[in-house]
Design a protein around this nucleic acid. Sequence first.
DNA 1: TCATCCAAAATCGTTGACAATTTCTACCCC
DNA 2: GGGGTAGAAATTGTCAACGATTTTGGATGA
Lengths: 214, 214
Amino acid sequence: MPAAAPAVEARVTDLIREAIVRGDYAPNQRLIEADLSESFSASRATVRTALLELASEGLVERLPNKGSRVRAISLDEAIEILEVRIGLEGLCAAKTAEGLTDAEAAEFEGLRAAMLAAVDEGDLVEYARLHQRLDARVRELSRHATAAGVLARLYAQSIRYHFKLASKPARAKVSLLEHVAIVDAILARDPDAAERAVRAHLLSVIDALRDLAA
Amino acid sequence: MPAAAPAVEARVTDLIREAIVRGDYAPNQRLIEADLSESFSASRATVRTALLELASEGLVERLPNKGSRVRAISLDEAIEILEVRIGLEGLCAAKTAEGLTDAEAAEFEGLRAAMLAAVDEGDLVEYARLHQRLDARVRELSRHATAAGVLARLYAQSIRYHFKLASKPARAKVSLLEHVAIVDAILARDPDAAERAVRAHLLSVIDALRDLAA
DNA sequence: TCATCCAAAATCGTTGACAATTTCTACCCC
DNA sequence: GGGGTAGAAATTGTCAACGATTTTGGATGA
């Protein structure tokens, strides 16, 4: 049996999603089915399916009989997404703190040390990678499929704003302290403190985003 | 122009969704494209698109090369959904309390009176209708499209459990008090109190659901 | 009896073509 | 010259057919 090639459909969806997230297609740019069909050498129906899927993820906007376009996330929407994330990531952090195993605790200690080192060395890219990994692990270890699923979607939508924030050096120091507080609360196995720490962090991100716009 | 007939695609999606929510198709029942195609007299491609859409809403489960089935929401999942709703509905209630106009306040006072009357008369069906309307209005008036969108999806998924709870007469009295508390907090234009009231209510629903299973 | 294998049926995935709708363009009339 | 209009071009929506994959049922042999 040849190494189980993934369905074309799923593959095309991923390719288009990556292209959007990477910024190959500008916000509000029209996505014409026939063009994508040629670009990715897939049938138009396959592309159509992919666009449908991406529309449900919030990355693409579909107007009946008028085609698809890359959905532009406004600053207001980005803030809305962060507000929703307060509730969801707070929940995940609390659950993670509640059910933390010793092995998981060790992993978080490692991440905390690595984040501190990265910021100390001024390596913003590495720090961004690490704190994304921290967020992802908190979501996974919460074992809360519903919250994790919703968060994954929201995250993809607002990725553009993540880049903008991550490029501000002054932001890293604030962000670091907040993330350390989150890790500390989880390591203390204190669900309430973890939820509060997440809330504080995301409120701070909202403020930073507002400043960025002003 | 003739009253803008909706696209067949959207119509079929709605029909299948209603059939699932109404319970015409049992959980885990296989949904065969060819059969649905005949039932709704639409092409298989249209049905396929509809199933894809419903899968993204969480109502249908799609296994690659193995077809679609009505997704069965386990009790654990229903509880997860309620946990997520705490964060989201709490947010909506806070926003609604924050920006409440006098006209909206009058509407909530009317709903509160109607709910009290319905439970007093033992009309459980009317009470269920009213408190669903209350929830919906809180979502709408929060003007938080992101939270409202996520909530709409989660609500459709867990509708089966709503029915189960709504049919317990003893539950109505508890539920009524909690909803009155929510309305009171909103009318007082106190965001924090509204969020706490929503949290208390949903935690109580989680308990009730656990009892139901035991 | 039971496990194994193979063929046939059922079902999904993909494609190309056609129909319906929207958008663009050139033209005409005022 | 401006505005509206008919027709053409571009694009999406729908369909039926073909190919690929999975499941089913029964025949075979130990």
